[in-house]
Design a protein around this nucleic acid. Structure first.
Lengths: 135, 135
DNA sequence: TTTCGTTATTCCCTGTTGTATATTACGCCT
DNA sequence: AGGCGTAATATACAACAGGGAATAACGAAA
């Protein structure tokens, strides 16, 4: 990676500890991830891929590739876009896009809970017997 | 990354689905991760960083850097090494190294369980109401 | 018709990461 | 003393992901 100052990495700030990343795979690699979901939310907010990308300090090229990747892997596009017209065009998040956002944030919240639990269970129990977490 | 055919990536083979990576951070970035732990186990198996690296199709340089990173971030080294002598030298996993291996695999197993649960709970529930997982 | 801002697409360049290679230090062994 | 296989270290090289800039297409509005 070239630039570590991207939004995706700014939130990992309190080592040491139990860390992780989650995503949802599609047929061709990553389908939904943290950055992609934030991008969807910014597109919803600004109605424009260009503005969404700028707000995340992300190149338009990269943002467009992410949107394209999501749209190609989803059954129905998560982002609709049009060129020309009033304001030059724009983009919006479809209903399926909104579902994707909800789904991922649920996954994400569950994962944060999981990390908290692991910290509780494992951080000070690496003596000899490791208490098994009840699942 | 240059070569995706490394051990670290060969295991992600069944999209689509809920995926993730976990690791344990230290003061200077990653402290324990999947590849590092497998490397520790290979060092224990072969008694040599060189042979361990070869067995993972990893360059010695990279393997050594991982070992160095772990040793510098741990309170006591996870790997002991010596040059010269019978067989030219060698490396071994210390007691703290063994603890690290156990700790990470526990974390890893818990994470696999978590992913299975999420798949159960979220994969077919993205209609409108998302059932909250009991934590 | 011209203007405008966006989507969509292409090309070049750079920083990063890891490989490959070479070299030195080391200490037990024959 | 010399050989051996390893750790440790430095240098050069290759691949690649992503940034930046440039360009064309587009369609409503002035």
């Amino acid at each position: 990676m070239h630039k570590k100052n991207t939004l995706l990495f700014k939130r990992k700030v309190s080592p040491p500890g139990f860390c992780g990343r989650i995503w949802i795979d599609g047929e061709k690699g990553t389908f939904l991830g943290y950055g992609r979901i934030v991008l969807l939310e910014r597109i919803r907010e600004y109605g424009s891929i260009t503005k969404a990308a700028k707000s995340m300090e992300m190149s338009y090229r990269h943002a467009w590739e992410l949107v394209d990747s999501m749209n190609r892997q989803a059954q129905k596009p998560l982002v609709g876009a049009s060129t020309g017209g009033k304001g030059g065009g724009g983009a919006h998040v479809t209903e399926d896009g909104e579902k994707a956002i909800k789904l991922f944030w649920q996954f994400y919240a569950d994962f944060q809970d999981f990390l908290r639990q692991e910290k509780q269970n494992l951080m000070f129990s690496n003596k000899n017997q490791q208490r098994r977490r009840k699942v």
